[in-house]
């Protein structure tokens, strides 16, 4: 991979980081802000995994095993465990 590809990726990551900080400082609706920040976070993770870690140059089998395992288990953890916090809060308020 060419050196300039890495530095273009670096520039993209910096731009996204600055955009996230700018979005965090604005008074956007909570859900919209959350969506924007999480989307930018995932794009940044894709840049790092795909370009810096060369995942996009690896075999499809490796790429799928790495990404599906991490994304699948992380999603199961977040959507399975974190929302229980709201139920716990509702129970403690009773």
């Amino acid at each position: 991979m060419a050196y300039k590809t890495y530095w273009k990726t670096w520039l993209g990551l910096l731009t996204l980081t600055l955009a996230m900080i700018a979005a965090g400082g604005r008074t956007l609706p909570r859900l919209l802000l959350l969506g924007v920040l999480l989307a930018a976070m995932l794009v940044k993770a894709g840049f790092i995994g795909g370009v810096f870690m060369h995942l996009r140059s690896e075999t499809r089998a490796l790429m799928l095993i790495v990404t599906l395992t991490i994304i699948g288990v992380s999603a199961a953890l977040f959507f399975g465990i974190a929302p229980d916090g709201m139920r716990a809060l509702a129970l403690s308020d009773r």
């Binding site: 992380s74 953890l77 399975g80 974190a82 929302p83 916090g85």
Partner: peptide, 27 residues
């Protein structure tokens, strides 16, 4: 190294999911 990275990523995912739970449960 990739297998180690997957395992370590899941460890961090567990911590961050726990953080999400505690943050939501705290009100």
């Amino acid at each position: 190294m990739w297998i180690f990275i997957i395992g370590d990523a899941l460890l961090f995912a567990g911590f961050l999911a726990g953080y999400g739970f505690l943050r939501l449960a705290s009100g």
